[in-house]
Amino acid sequence: MEWKWDFTLQILPRLIEATGATLMAAAFGYLIAMVLGLGLALAQRTPYGALTRVVREGVEFIRSTPLILQIFFVFYVAPQFGVTLSPWVAGMLAIGLHYAAYLSEVYRGGLESVDRGQWEAATSLNLGTAHAYRRIILPQALPNAIPGMGNYLVGILKDTPMLSVIGVGELMHTANAIGAETYRFLEPFTLVGLIFLTISLPLAELVRRAETRLRRKLGLVK
């Protein structure tokens, strides 16, 4: 079988359009994961031991089961309880929750890396817990979390093709559709791979640079 350039050019616009959907899915999913993950991390730092254990187990569970199964679970189980979710909403929830579990571990590591003396200083200045988190602890914990966060940003992007299984119209879904319509798989699937490469490689590099810059800006470079 030979690579057909005219066919390539013909399907490229459709794939590029779908790339937009892929990027959007990654961005939304990551946004949900960032917020939810912080909640999961903070929930493990309350004085309530039972809460910590439950959240810990939950995070472990999500991290050690396949995302694709979680996507199916959210998409098909919600209607059983009378909530019908669109593929997009179900997909964002599943991928957001999955990566929230990963990000919560990253945040936790970052929070634990902040010196205990910082809490003591915050107490000695009578700053409240919420204020101390927001202004003192999180700004120091985040730079330590950035490399891990960046890796998972690239990770979430690469996992978005799984959303195609419930019909989210991202890249993989579009490539499949093209394959089904034309019986040509070589070009669409190869292009999808190339598009992922052209996004994820520079993204990984960008994450590395952002980390350095943030550290410098926060005065954490010795």
Binding site: K158, M172, F189, F196, L197
Partner: peptide, 20 residues
């Protein structure tokens, strides 16, 4: 290449494209 693209993409490629 293998870390920069998705497992699902690779799987489809191996299964659908290699036979070609």
């Amino acid at each position: 290449v293998f870390r920069g693209t998705s497992l699902l993409v690779q799987l489809y490629w191996i299964f659908f494209v290699l036979p070609l």
